[in-house]
């Protein structure tokens, strides 16, 4: 029995937008097992981003339960959430979101700074992580001196460096051409084969198909992949 990494049950989240209440997440439940490569697909405005924020511990649900690696997230305060993000979540963004004034390796080191690691250990881990994405030779480069694909690889290295429970990729190929996109996806597949749990959020079905399992989100409700269910997962 593979351990459950993420256990989401009956998650609700609504926003007030221009006087109207928008149910961004409507009774969403989802289990993700350790080592899975899951794609969440949905058009814009579907509640995809809200779900991502929720999984990434950037936001708290109104009601419902979210267990990440056995920890209840819903009732944590800001500081505890920051610690959880630091230790359990590796973010990969569409626009890479590297700090432009820091070199590649400094960007990768950043999560370790916030977890309070000593300089030397930090440097070694960061270099290891850069090696995994094949960019050890670009450690001293600034993001502006790197191509889009390389920048995204640095971002992946940064997400990996803290050995998080999940890698959360939000449209990781959205700003890349198709060739580089494939490279990035291959890296992610590789990482998945090495045992990392990866959650890929995208609106592109072709990208989503690269994952082992696909869920669709529409109008705040979650559906297991139409047609090609992989594994035994309950649809709520």
């Amino acid at each position: 029995m593979v351990a459950t990494m993420i256990q989401i049950s009956n998650l609700m989240k609504s926003y007030k937008l221009g006087g109207e209440t928008v149910h961004a997440l409507n009774n969403v439940s989802l289990d993700i097992k350790k080592g899975e490569f899951l794609a969440i697909i949905g058009p814009s405005g579907s509640g995809k981003s809200t779900l991502m924020n929720m999984i990434g511990c950037l936001d708290r649900p109104d009601t419902g339960q979210y267990l990440l690696d056995g920890k209840e997230i819903g009732k944590m305060n800001d500081n505890e959430l920051a610690t959880i993000r630091n230790q359990k979540v590796g973010f990969i963004f569409q626009n890479f979101n590297l700090l432009t004034k820091l070199t590649a390796i400094e960007n990768v080191e950043l999560p370790l700074i916030y977890s309070g690691l000593a300089t030397k250990a930090r440097h070694e881990l960061a270099l290891d992580s850069l090696k995994k994405v094949g960019l050890a030779d670009r450690a001293g480069h600034l993001p502006t001196q790197l191509s889009g694909g390389q920048q995204q690889r640095v971002a992946i290295a940064r997400a990996l460096v803290g050995q998080p429970a999940i890698l959360l990729a939000d449209e990781p190929t959205g700003a890349l051409d198709s060739k580089t996109s494939m490279e990035i996806l291959n890296i992610m597949k590789e990482l998945n084969e090495q045992g990392n749990t990866i959650i890929l959020i995208t609106h592109d079905l072709n990208i989503a198909k690269q994952a082992n399992r696909m869920v669709r989100i529409q109008d705040g409700q979650l559906f297991e992949n139409e047609g090609e269910p992989i594994g035994n997962f309950t649809i709520y």
Partner: peptide, 16 residues
């Protein structure tokens, strides 16, 4: 602001 957002996402606390 963006930088602050990134830092917070990867685990910077308010104090940091």
């Amino acid at each position: 602001t963006k930088e602050i957002g990134i830092r917070k996402a990867i685990g910077a606390k308010r104090r940091d």
